[in-house]
């Protein structure tokens, strides 16, 4: 028991040590703005992939418009900051809530659609949101995009150094992923998985399927909105093309390559698809072809993903201290 506790605490501490000590030290010693951007992009896309995993990999709803909700969050944060003087402290939750509110309105009519019909509906919604960002010039400033020069204000302090912004982004991404980890690695998460497996059967088990689908879609969109606000504050400039259909597909690719249903897999997929193209910059135009090959062969040889759902759930249960083991056999099953 105590050995398990030390093991799981050690793993969690190691993750925090890498994110908040080793990586910042490395960033400071390299001291290149470009590296900061890549690392923060990797963090933000990890959150995007994990939030899409909740809805697509776990609840089984193929969502082709995730980037649009990311865009809604980014635009709410950027416009609130640039036009209304609403800073990060308030802008961040507003971005999440705004994206979740739109998700709720969208979810009401679409949740009764199944499989491919739901996918097409989300594709349409993503496109609609993109076109609004692109063409509602009076509010969104259209294709010119929005510039946001203010630093991150935190309860009266202004964080504007690259290292400071890194710490803020890393903290918020960490907390957000922790929340989604708790949700998916719980009996609530099991109920979501049952929707993916057989939602009629879940209904017969007393699971309110429509409500669960709407909830997971809203929670996922909330965190996409949070990721959008982080993006707006780290780059200082956003435009509609950051949130088009190709971005939704990129996030979906991260989730599938990492392993549908696996939270650690989504993070691995995000890191791979952000860091690999950057690492290959030296190769020139060939790099996108190489990335394509890596995707193709990873799916061909590992269709369940680099870190699929089954090994991932075992890992979380055994190494992360999330399992219930008060049973006579001391088996690590279910969730605490």
């Amino acid at each position: 028991m105590s050995k398990d506790f030390i093991q799981s605490a050690g793993l969690k501490l190691a993750i925090l040590a890498v994110l908040f000590v080793a990586l910042p030290l490395l960033l400071v010693s390299l001291d290149k703005g470009y590296i900061y951007q890549v690392v923060m992009l990797a963090l933000i896309f990890s959150l995007l992939a994990v939030s899409l995993q909740l809805v697509t990999g776990i609840a089984g709803l193929l969502h082709l418009g995730h980037a649009a909700f990311y865009g809604v969050g980014a635009y709410i944060a950027a416009l609130a900051g640039a036009d209304y003087g609403i800073g990060f402290t308030l802008g961040l939750p507003l971005a999440g809530l705004g994206a979740a509110a739109i998700a709720f309105v969208v979810a009401l009519p679409t949740m009764r659609l199944v499989s491919i019909y739901f996918a097409v509906a989300t594709l349409g919604i993503g496109q609609m949101i993109f076109l609004v960002l692109q063409n509602w010039v009076e509010v969104t400033k259209g294709p010119n995009g929005v510039s946001l020069f203010s630093g991150i204000d935190l309860f009266g302090y202004t964080v504007d150094s690259e290292l400071g912004i890194y710490f803020v982004v890393a903290t918020i991404v960490c907390i957000s992923i922790w929340v989604i980890h708790r949700l998916s690695h719980s009996y609530y998460g099991n109920a979501l998985r049952s929707l993916r497996e057989d939602d009629q059967c879940a209904d017969a088990m007393g699971i309110n399927t429509v409500r669960l689908k709407i909830e997971s879609f809203m929670i996922s969109s909330f965190f996409a909105g949070i990721a959008g606000a982080l993006w707006a504050y780290t780059t200082g400039y956003i435009s509609p093309v950051d949130f088009d259909f190709a971005e939704s597909i990129l996030i979906l690719a991260m989730v599938v390559v990492g392993g549908l249903g696996s939270i650690p897999g989504a993070i691995i997929g995000a890191l791979l698809l952000i860091l690999l193209p950057e690492a290959l910059r030296g190769v020139g135009d060939m790099r996108n072809i190489i990335v394509g090959f890596v995707l193709f062969f990873s799916i061909l040889f590992l269709p369940k993903g680099l870190f699929g759902e089954v090994p991932s759930l075992n890992f979380i249960r055994r190494q992360f201290g999330s399992a219930w083991q008060d049973n006579p056999d001391k088996q690590k099953v279910g969730w605490k």
Binding site: R193, G206, Q331, V333
Partner: peptide
Amino acid sequence: FPNMTVFDNVSVGAV
């Protein structure tokens, strides 16, 4: 639910 463990299957009834 084929892609869930035996225990997780049963837990759906309980949840």
